[in-house]
Design a protein around this nucleic acid. Structure first.
Lengths: 256, 256
DNA sequence: TGGCAGCTTTTGTCCGACAAATGAAACCGG
DNA sequence: CCGGTTTCATTTGTCGGACAAAAGCTGCCA
């Protein structure tokens, strides 16, 4: 007979157990966002471990985004913040050597999905926010600060995703959006007519949203994203190059 | 005149600076996956801070998934692990009180996207892996252990996403997949014919993949995911209920 | 050569201590 | 009585040192 095969026994460290215990409290709903987790001294008493150990556990939770320490004061449970997670995802993608083609293909479908869902669910306040973004872009088209344009483009698509009323979708599209839209800056520098085309597309998207015209929205979104691709190639970039190479030359700190 | 309004100055703590410094090394590529980051003693020397401080910084990186400590030994840079990130995304969604309707709507489009991309990019080895999964499912259909069935379904869709050849897409779909497919277990318990319908759909998807028939693949994927929805409702669940309620009654530990 | 004992390195945990920042309470002047 | 100011206690961030357990390495010996 063959010997039984055992999985390696993983003995969790004390600091991990502290983190997991608190995490269970949060995930089970016994601790709700805004609640105080307690001071380090309390946790030391409750868990019966040293303060250093408690602190290491807290760091894990802090990075998970489950708890937050406000400047000087007590530890409390965080409302879930997706932005932090999305940027980590983006980083993982960069490290994983994904190519712009992958990012582009995913963005194309994700953004079309977003705008189609937005057609069904956008409220007036969502549309107002998009209009405000558009006004900023139109008023600044002459100065044409590329990094500002890129920021507005990123924001526009984030607002659109928000208007979809689907937070799962909103979250799913964010990692790729964080990678692709900031490169608009690079494109704007090389392709002068880029900003104008962007504004035109955004205008059409808003109008389609108002008219609840799904076909028109999808068509213009496709056109808009493919415009990005053309600009990217016209700027002399290779779609099959890993994202890493391109991102490096932008300001990485600003991205994440 | 009005006084200038300043943003709050955020002074990073020493442990955060340690984490950020190492993170920059990794993101810039100077430290590559597999490289040694160095011992705590070395970092203490290099940064000129106390060992406790270094350790807290390391905990941040550890939770980010950027570094890993193997069993007992030296700290080294990790290859990016998406699973860890996806499960944290899922947790954030649960905490954010998203509803199953949101998860379902997102899953429907994401899975269709995945299978369509797989039609274009799947290799023989991808299809072989799917076949192996299908054989397992078919051979176990009689015993019909619901949790096993749910696992196979989850795996099937993960394999399909892998076959899409697009890691961005693969990552984007994972958080919602982690929430939706495990509930198949619940459905299998209440809806006896569920497992059979699942296997049929998977079979059709594999065949469509072989035939490179995108329309057929999309049709069956839509049917398959909507089957999930029907089963979910037949099991007496409300699509507009927050995910939290349902997940709680499964085994949360097994999910994440 | 192979295996075992002992040493070294490294991590996990603990203890005690202090400065800075913060919130709260006491205090004081009008 | 109220508003502002000054202690004062609490809490966090950081430091220094210490020790046990585990993992790697070395050298000895059969």
């Amino acid at each position: 007979m063959t010997a039984a095969r055992y999985n390696k026994i993983k003995v969790p460290s004390a600091y991990q157990m502290v983190a997991e215990a608190i995490e269970r409290e949060i995930m089970s709903g016994r601790l709700r966002p805004g609640d105080q987790v307690g001071t380090e001294a309390e946790l030391v008493r409750q868990f019966g471990v040293n303060r250093s150990t408690v602190r290491e556990g807290i760091r894990l939770l802090e990075q998970s985004g489950l708890v937050q320490r406000e400047a000087g004061r007590k530890l409390h449970v965080c409302p879930p913040r997706y932005r932090n997670l999305s940027s980590r995802m983006s980083r993982a993608l960069v490290l994983g050597q994904v190519t712009f083609r992958e990012v582009f293909d995913a963005t194309l479908v994700l953004e079309i999905m977003s705008v189609e869902a937005a057609i069904d669910h956008a409220t007036d306040s969502h549309i107002k926010a998009l209009e405000a973004n558009q006004r900023s872009a139109e008023s600044e088209i002459d100065h044409a600060d590329p990094s500002r344009i890129a920021q507005l483009d990123t924001d526009f698509h984030a607002l659109l995703a928000r208007a979809s009323g689907n937070r799962v979708l909103e979250l799913a599209r964010e990692p790729s959006a964080l990678l692709i839209f900031p490169t608009s800056e690079l494109i704007c520098r090389r392709v002068p007519e880029g900003a104008g085309r962007m504004i035109r597309a955004h205008r059409e998207l808003i109008d389609a949203l108002r008219a609840r015209d799904k076909t028109r929205a999808a068509t213009w979104m496709k056109r808009h994203v493919e415009d990005w691709k053309k600009g990217f190639e016209r700027a002399g970039r290779d779609m099959d190059e890993p994202v890493e190479r391109v991102i490096e030359r932008l300001a990485p700190a600003a991205l994440f």
